[in-house]
Nucleic acid binder design. Structure first.
Ligand SMILES: [Zn+2]
Ligand SMILES: [Zn+2]
Ligand SMILES: [Zn+2]
Ligand SMILES: [Zn+2]
Lengths: 125, 125
DNA sequence: CTTGACCTTGTCACCGGCGTCAAGCTTTAC
DNA sequence: GTAAAGCTTGACGCCGGTGACAAGGTCAAG
C-alpha cells in the first residue's frame, strides 16, 4: 500500500510517517514512480509506535520495540531492550510524579504564605 | 547597580535579565553610556520571579506577581490576579498528576501484557 | 484534455527560556 | 598603554513532533 492508505489505516498523518522514516523507525520500498510502498507488517509497526507515544514514549523510546517486531517477535515489548525502556519509563514517570507532588506543596505553601486564608475561603480576594 | 551585579546577587544570568526585560517583566534606567541601571526593588522583583519559576511557573505566570510588587504591596501574591494564578497553577498541577498516574498504569499494563512476569522478577530478560 | 486526488522533496514555524557566539563600545586595573 | 572585564544589540540553536506551505510529478476518472 502507499503512504496515504497506511496513514488512514493507522490514523496518523502522512507527514508523521515521513518523519518516522527520516528518523529511521520505519522503512519503505519505492515503486517505479518514486512512491513509498508498504506492507501489512508496517501497519503493525506504526500502530505499536502510536500506542507507545500515546502513553508518553518518545520516538527514540519506540525504536527497540520496532526492532523487536522486525526480528519476528509477536510482541514489541518482549526483547530485553524494550523491557529496559519500560523500566526506565516507569522510573521516569515515578520521578515526575514525585516532583509534581513536591512542587504542589511548595506552591501551596507559597500561596498560604502570600495570602493567608485564600486557600480556604474561595470567594475572598 | 548594573546588570552584572544584579545577576550575581539574584543568581541568574545577564542573558536571562535581558530576556525578562524584553518580555516586559523588568525595567531599567539607562546611564549616560547606555548601561542598564537597577535599584534594590529590582532585586526583590527578580527574586520573586525566580522563586515562582523554581516551582514551575512560566514567565507569563509571574507577571501579575511583578505588577503586585510594583504597586507597592509587600507580597507579590496578594493581589487578586496573583491569587487567580496560584489557583490555576494548583489545578494545573493536579491535572498533570492525575494524567501521570493514568499513564503510569497504562504503561504498567502494556508492560505486563507484553512480557508477563517482568514486573516482578527484576533479573529476568 | 483537464481536473483533482495523491505523491515527491524541501523549508519555515512553533513553544520557552534561555546558552552561546559575534562584533563592538566603556571602564577599570596594572 | 594595554589587557581584562563588563556592557551593548542582534541573531542562531536547541528540544520533539509535527502543521503548513511551496513547487512540482503521477495517475485515474470524466
Ligand atoms: Zn523481541
Ligand atoms: Zn486573599
Ligand atoms: Zn498586590
Ligand atoms: Zn521477560
Amino acid at each position: 500500500m502507499r503512504i496515504g492508505e497506511l496513514a488512514r489505516r493507522v490514523g496518523v498523518s502522512t507527514r508523521a510517517l515521513r518523519y518516522y522514516e527520516q528518523r529511521g523507525l520505519i522503512r519503505s520500498r519505492r515503486s517505479a514512480n518514486g512512491y513509498r510502498e508498504y506492507d501489512e507488517s508496517d501497519v503493525r509497526i506504526v500502530t505499536e509506535i502510536r500506542e507507545l507515544m500515546s502513553v508518553g514514549f518518545t520516538l527514540e523510546d519506540a525504536r527497540p520495540f520496532v526492532d523487536c517486531l522486525r526480528s519476528g517477535h509477536p510482541s514489541g515489548g518482549s526483547c530485553p531492550e524494550s523491557v529496559a525502556v519500560y523500566r526506565r519509563k516507569l522510573a521516569e514517570i515515578d520521578r515526575e510524579i514525585r516532583d509534581l507532588l513536591a512542587r504542589r506543596s511548595e506552591v501551596a505553601a507559597q500561596f498560604a504564605d502570600a495570602c493567608p486564608g485564600c486557600l480556604l475561603r474561595r470567594g475572598e480576594s
